[in-house]
Write a protein that binds this DNA or RNA. Structure first.
Lengths: 345, 345
DNA sequence: ATGAAAGCGCTAACAG
DNA sequence: CTGTTAGCGCTTTCAT
């Protein structure tokens, strides 16, 4: 094939003795182009080794075919799955992803949002950082009617769509499950309550307590960043509680749960005998820790796919922001040995 | 700020009563522009809310400032770390990443390579799929002198750079460690030997056996895709071996090791008493499985960073492909309980 | 040190 | 169904 010069639609046009416009239209299967011409164009394009110049196209059409993605961290199983889902959905409709991470910092998130804006992404997919307080940094997008879709860690806003699971219900169900196993003092390892996922989970936890006539004890809610260290720290706190120690822990993610379990096991506590455990996310580690961790499963892949599809719909004008403001995905309680008190001891 | 119309260099030019050319040059700190003018341009740009149009720029300059990334899978801890490192390094020099996954299939990898080529990435970063047989699909890049950097799963080629660890040495050291623990029949769970990482690890394993006068037994090398299922299958094979069962297993990744361990533990085998274990990658799961898994640690983050930096150097003409053909990163043996036979039983 | 003019490759009116 | 024309915003000679 022709090595050096890039083939343009003009080369194809000349080759076929038609106009560049026709080639341009033919290449994107414009309906008003004769089927036959269209085929000839496609063949010539292939034969000449044509590749479209997206810059010329973007410059003209003011569409970049690029979606910006801002996530707290790249390196978790959940987020990898989300990205995999996004990548699949995006490539299916010929969109690119520009991915960046906030490292859980509002400051970096703001910087990333600016960058995305300057890169003129057609739309934005965001899962908020741990400590993001407001969404002013997305205002430029709203102003320009660039659709923003939040997922998992969302921000209730008229101007954007959110993809979530029913965190309240999920937490309610885990808590209920634990209470039904006979647990009396259920501790909750929560994250920053600014984030819907954590406040909703706390709410679900509270609701279940209430329904079971267990009074809410603030001392049993431990707020942290839910990482490895926080899990260990929570365990230390539990160990320091002596007789008033909880007999169950619900962590808002599996990481905190697992590292808390490891520390408590080291200290000689039996799980679930002395203390039952449940987490969130169904991370692979939940099936490796012993005993296996009861958790809430929801598909990151589906969430990523849904987020992209929703965004694309907005871009295509299929759905307006107002019609679908929140999409709730399925989640399931997976009961494993870490919470089965009845059958174990 | 001005809401609707995009500000162009012409607007700045008009505002300052100078030419667009000067603005263009001023904006990129061209040396021939008066310092004072330069400052005025920068101020006006900021004040008017100018954002550069990368498409116009790319169209003209034929540079996209975009790096293509093709990885086997997004959703592993190692790869997430690699991507995090790449993202950091790339954003530092204002490059974008377009990320795609081959899902371990040569076919998808070829398709991805085409896509990347058509998107006109300035350079390509690749970790090869499980069964990729040749790199003909990267020939168009070589032909156009678009730099291609392979990482981890590389392909020895004159035309490209590779970023790896010394897999042979690493495997040699794990094997040696196991033999020194008194293991006599060391099994190796290998991956496709087409991939350097797996053939090199096998080579290191063989070398250590040889040095310790242990004869190589092909029956003790189990080749698979090294995923969860393969780990379980390997365990089943081990269990079926009866008396000839190995007393140690070195898996070419932690996933295979861990799921193999779980299955064997279920079957009642003691680790490391009956059978010692070691893996590769230092995945988080290696610290959660009991006993903790001995493994080879190497930084995905560093590898990603190094890959991007090396690519950028090529793009800037700092280093030619010929000068640095392979970069070897540090790796370390981390000894944990799964391989400590002496101190345990 | 600065400017004028041309054109990168494509698409969107508009016309026929 | 197809073509003509103009111009997206920038960079790059070539002048001055």
């Amino acid at each position: 094939m022709h090595e050096d010069k890039e083939i343009t639609i003009y080369d194809i046009a000349k080759h076929l003795n038609i106009s560049a416009t026709t080639v341009s239209r033919g290449l994107k299967d414009h309906p008003t182009i004769n089927k036959n011409t269209r085929k000839k164009i496609a063949e010539a394009a292939h034969h000449l080794g044509y590749r479209s110049n997206t810059f010329a196209s973007s410059l003209r059409s003011k569409k970049t075919h690029t979606i910006g993605v801002i996530v707290p961290r790249l390196n978790s199983y959940f987020m990898s799955s989300v990205l995999a889902g996004m990548e699949d959905a995006a490539s299916r409709v010929n969109y690119n992803l520009i991915i960046s991470q906030s490292l859980e910092k509002a400051g970096k998130e703001i910087a990333n949002a600016h960058t995305m804006f300057n890169k003129r992404v057609d739309g934005l997919l965001v899962s908020l950082a741990y400590d993001t307080g407001n969404i002013n940094h997305f205002a430029p997008f709203f102003r320009k009617k660039i659709p923003v879709v939040f997922f998992d860690r969302i921000y209730a806003s008229e101007e954007s769509t959110g993809i979530v699971i029913d965190n309240r219900k999920a937490a309610y169900e885990v808590t209920k499950h634990l209470l039904e196993q006979g647990c009396k003092r259920v501790m909750h390892l929560a994250g920053n309550l600014l984030r819907n996922v954590y406040s909703d989970r706390l709410a679900g936890y509270k609701k279940a307590l209430e329904e079971h006539n267990v009074s809410y004890d603030e001392g049993l809610v431990h707020i942290s960043t839910l990482d490895e260290k926080s899990g260990t720290a929570a365990a230390e706190r539990i160990l320091s509680m002596g007789k008033k120690r909880p007999d169950a822990v619900i962590a808002a993610n599996d990481t905190a749960a697992v590292y808390c379990m490891i520390k408590l096991k080291d200290a000689g506590l039996l799980i679930p005998g002395d203390i039952a455990f449940a987490g969130f996310n169904n991370d692979p580690i939940s099936k490796i820790i012993e005993p296996n961790l009861t958790t809430i499963n929801y598909s990151g892949y589906d969430m990523g796919e849904t987020a992209v599809n929703s965004l694309i719909n907005h871009l295509n004008g299929v759905s307006s922001v107002r019609t679908t403001n929140t999409i709730i995905l399925r989640s399931d309680l997976i009961i494993r040995a870490s919470s089965l008190k009845n059958k174990n001891l």
